[in-house]
Design a protein around this nucleic acid. Sequence first.
DNA 1: CTTTGTAATAGTGGATACACTCATACAGAA
DNA 2: TTCTGTATGAGTGTATCCACTATTACAAAG
Lengths: 235, 235
Amino acid sequence: MSFASKGMAATAQDEAYRAILQDIRSGRYQPGERLIPETIARELAMSRMPVREAFQRLANEGLVLIRPNRGCVVSGLTIDEIYELFEIRSVLEGLAVRLAMPRFDAAALAELDDHVARMHRAGAAGGADWLTKHQEFHAYICGLSRRPKLIAQIAALHIAVEPSMRVWLHHVAQPAHATERQDEVVEAIRTGDAEHAEAVMRDHVLRTAPRLAEFLRKRGQAAGVPSTLPASTQI
Amino acid sequence: MSFASKGMAATAQDEAYRAILQDIRSGRYQPGERLIPETIARELAMSRMPVREAFQRLANEGLVLIRPNRGCVVSGLTIDEIYELFEIRSVLEGLAVRLAMPRFDAAALAELDDHVARMHRAGAAGGADWLTKHQEFHAYICGLSRRPKLIAQIAALHIAVEPSMRVWLHHVAQPAHATERQDEVVEAIRTGDAEHAEAVMRDHVLRTAPRLAEFLRKRGQAAGVPSTLPASTQI
DNA sequence: CTTTGTAATAGTGGATACACTCATACAGAA
DNA sequence: TTCTGTATGAGTGTATCCACTATTACAAAG
């Protein structure tokens, strides 16, 4: 289930949130595109209000930008922002794998191998869901850390770069190429050395950034609408 | 200005957000306390609606928990959650200081010393604003990393533990004791070794956790209302 | 042809109204 | 007395309405 939400929407607002999130992740709503509450509300057969509240949540997660009196646009990422997200993800996933190390017994390692195998299959099949399998691989490792907030933060980071990753994978990259790197991570975990595993994971995460960035630069994209921070937490 | 928001509220919703956030940080709204939109709306001379949207934002930041049809409560942190937040903060601030290292010229180092001096003064005066000065110290270092999202995340973490920190500092701890540790960080920065500075910062951040946790355990507090993840980002 | 002022329109933020859910208190049955 | 069902009230979620803002198109002046 990777980084998707589970359960059913209890409320209209939640339903709106999920629907919009899905459409941003999948790329249906492109960066820079303006989201009009009324339109989406009609689509989902509800009123504007729950849609607006969904916007709030999305804005807090940085997926959308709300400017007062000027509406809501899907916030693309600049190259710098993508780098930054990968930097953050590298240390967080490094932490996660370090904390997860004590829980990697034989069963966990076997399951980890399964994940890698699934990734390989999805990659070889040229399947578009390699990305999903890749996220599941990372999610499995992070999950073993048993740190709910850490897991949530990492998940949010995966989601933030997902749209960019999708166009990248769709247009050029052969996932198979990326897959071989995963083995390094698995190997490091197998050594049992937590510090080492952390370092390798950091490295592994960071390695993707420049390749994605280069692709986006060539496409001239990713200069869309710079996302902004939640207005709250500024220094 | 530490981790406070700047500028004026452009919208009623923003005003509500700031007001509630302030009251949670200061401890006026205790963990477990229920927040009734109507009441707060009356207090701020506005309607329920912007207050509700403010709740959404606060919920996303983990400061508040919204259960469908059951209202909004201030979410205290369990001991485990406090540890987790410090763990996350340690790697993020470690990253921040590493990235900030190239920008620590003579001027920056001087300003850093100023921050430490201010902290010492506030601590010696038994001032309640030692915490603020301490946050400013960290914020200054993080700010030099020039990573907006990283800075925002760290700020959010500082805010999350702020209520607990306030009761701790108010009841027992002598900030002066904590202050001497800062010098280690400054010293490490002065060496110019980024890896070393990162390690020291990690250590510095983590050191606070057990002391705070022990205090809260003795007080029997911190078992308030466990905060939850944004329903969105689960694995 | 460009610039500036103005009108029309789309869209946003907020208030109010209404329907539904949950919790509490209380009455009656066991 | 204890348990269960019901009624009542507080509070939540959503829809609709209104006032205001911003943007666009267009017209008049330079």
